[in-house]
Design a binder for these strands. Sequence first.
RNA 1: GCCCCCGUAGCUCAGCUGGAUAGAGCGCCGGCCUUCUAAGCCGGAUGUCGCAGGUUCGAAUCCUGCCGGGGGUACCA
Length: 558
Amino acid sequence: MRSTTCSRASGLNRRMVVVARTDPVSSLLEVVTEAARELSGDRSVLPALDPAPRPELGDFSSNAAMLIAKPLGRAPREVAVELADAVSDRLGESLERVEVAGPGFLNLFLADDWYRKAVEELSGDSAPVPAGGESERILVEFVSANPTGPLTAASGRHAAYGDAVARLLVATGHQVSTEYYVNDGGSQVESFAASIAARMNGDEPPENGYRGDYVNQLADRARETGIGPEELERLALEGVAWMVESIQQSLDRFGVQMDDFFSERSLYQDGLVEKGLERLRNAGHTFEEGGALWLRTTEFGDDKDRVLVRSGGEPTYFGADVAYHADKVERGHVRLLDVLGADHHGYVARMDAAIKSLGKEDVAFEARILQMIHLVEGGKRTKMSKRAGDIVTLDELVADIGVDAARFFLLQRSHDSTMDLDLDLARSQSSDNPVYYVQYAHARIQSILRKAADRPGTGNGTSPTLRTPVEPAEKALISLLLAFPAEVHQAAGRRAPHRICAYATETAAAFHAFYRDCQVVDAPGEGTEQARLALCESTAATLRSALGLLGISAPESM
RNA sequence: GCCCCCGUAGCUCAGCUGGAUAGAGCGCCGGCCUUCUAAGCCGGAUGUCGCAGGUUCGAAUCCUGCCGGGGGUACCA
């Protein structure tokens, strides 16, 4: 299973759009920081510079004075006045004015000139790799749903989340691989095979068996392949293989880049379980008791020790999984990021302990717990049980509302918040879905750009001496575009793709406002049209990047 | 019992490594298409940020306790 899919590896890294550029806002912050450090004599102060909450409070505001006032033993506003002078000196003509407000905020009002230059930087060649932070080799494991049934809508949340996080990590300069752990061993697979066999015989699946309709289809397929209901071993093997194949197709259709599908069974066949257990023994954190092999996970903060190998000699799921993670480390990954369901949170402490007990101090294990998703249909929650078969599959969800809407819906909310996804709503209002709002902004821009390009005889790149005032709507849009790299870093660092959804929505809104207020093609004033076209292009590029990070398309027209 | 997540507008949720008058979408009410896509825009209404303390110039955000909801707590996977 591994080798057949390895060819897909690293597609993710190659095709990613990278988002960082030189950043005029960072430059501003540097100026403020320097001034604050000089005034306070403290090199460690780290002021913030944020977009001002309201237009009358300027463009950006900083808390620098309030931070250094206390150590200086002076009144914040008094310090702020001095700081304002210093900042004003350093910024020169970029600054229109600076005001001290409230408890001691420094509010910067930037000159139109600053905005014009900022747009130029936006539309210039972008530097590919963002500043700060070192590049890590990260393995993101996600979905890893049991191969005994189709992916559910809940799996879809995992798929969308893991994929988006991977894209974010790539965009912030990391080397990322994505992996799906296939639990093709263990008792559930036997039960799965028995369920297929039962259907082949026209019987009901056994207690705790799988009752979904897809089991009937697998039974048909087994019959066609010439496998008899008594060949449970083959049914298990082939059944899982068919299921994995169909899962891969679902993920493909969903736009998820999975570099590898790692088979649990292959761990045994390749001797990796033995190898992994050996490493733990050598590291000296195991012990035997009651005929079983235990890992002393309590040494690393777990609340009880865990069994690796049962007294019967068979490794536990945990034992195999530890071996799997040891292999991840062996393959050179320094950060293991597991995306798990809420029902697995209890698992985190022990796996963390297991990784630590391997004694690799430069390796970090990190789990992200995705809270549950409830599908609401006809006003009531549907239970998501594979065994009972009353599931909404990812394929069905996608068929209902489309890949783009599904991904946006599933990514919109923080991973640690349980979410209700009302299927009726998602269906009936699919054209009101926020994703279309963002996509529409992109399509609108393309339409403007097409119109500008089609029109003969204007705009062949002469750099204008622009004297038209920069409109408020332009300023707002530019600020947002400038904030994008920082936003991507935040989202990546916090593993929080939902922030990109919010960012994209905000940016689209800012564009729609700009569209309302500012004529682009044939705009009056020397050079205004070109400046605005450049802004349109930057906006489109940013929206494309943002949507790309979410795995959502950016249409040319709608 | 212990562990994790959540509690913010009628609903679904952002904001939480502390900042000024707490936001978005949906829903509700009212406006805007002889101008680059009305899948759009503008205006209006709705809040004890679960409760109580604490930390400080400042708390939805940090700390403690409590209440409520969900999930977990196997020699299952």
